[in-house]
């Protein structure tokens, strides 16, 4: 839930990149950090440990301009995908306003995608949030690998696996080249703002 600060006239919300390990969450954020310098309001913070896996989280502060005289600040996080970091994932999800689910197009990761989506649903539920209600955008990443003659899933297959019931906006992408990264984030920010406006009207 977004945090409203009436004194500072500020809204702070939180977006989380979720998905299985190595699907490209950090790469997404790195591209955003490099490319959207106008919206990025501070440094990207991440922990590169042995093997450069995200053990903790990556963090990127952004600013989105104003709604109704309120300065909208966005904290963007990624979660560590590896199964063993379950508790960190849950902590990072705390107070989340919107989620970008980054799925891996490699066929060998098919099951991992589905398990991670289930894990997301489960963790959101523990915070009393329904995966059907929260602003959610799906990204099918690593599409560039299609040309490498590797076993890659078709977009139809991925939609069927992951988005059949959710029916959320989804984007093919290649975080490595940046293709689709901006579109995914923009859609997510749009959904976030819409739901924020709704929230503010209610109050």
């Amino acid at each position: 839930m977004a945090i409203l600060n009436f004194k500072k006239r500020q809204i702070e919300c939180k977006i989380v990149y979720y998905g299985p390990g190595r699907s490209g969450k950090t790469t997404n954020m790195e591209y955003v950090y490099r490319t959207y310098t106008k919206q990025v309001t501070g440094d990207m913070v991440s922990i590169d440990t042995e093997g450069d896996r995200t053990l903790f989280f990556d963090f990127l502060p952004m600013g989105l301009g104003e709604i109704k005289g309120f300065d909208v600040k966005v904290q963007v996080y990624t979660v560590p995908g590896q199964v063993q970091y379950r508790s960190t994932r849950k902590l990072v999800l705390k107070g989340v306003d919107a989620v970008i689910f980054v799925a891996d197009s490699l066929a060998v990761r098919r099951e991992k995608n589905m398990l991670s989506l289930k894990d997301l649903q489960h963790n959101l539920k523990e915070y009393g949030i329904s995966i059907f209600k929260i602003p959610l955008v799906m990204q099918h990443n690593k599409r560039d690998l299609v040309s490498e003659a590797l076993p890659i899933m078709s977009l139809e297959q991925m939609e069927k696996d992951l988005n059949r019931q959710l029916k959320v906006p989804s984007f093919p992408a290649s975080a490595l080249t940046g293709k689709g990264v901006g579109a995914t984030l923009k859609e997510c920010l749009k959904l976030t703002l819409v739901s924020l406006k709704k929230e503010m009207k209610l109050e």
């Binding site: 913070v45 991440s46 922990i47 440990t49 042995e50 093997g51 053990l55 903790f56 963090f59 063993q84």
Partner: peptide, 19 residues
């Protein structure tokens, strides 16, 4: 070697200086 490097990496690292 890469696998064991990752499996042996500390589970609760100190966060980065920035954090």
């Amino acid at each position: 070697k890469d696998i064991s490097r990752i499996e042996l990496a500390p589970k609760k690292p100190e966060m980065s200086t920035n954090i």
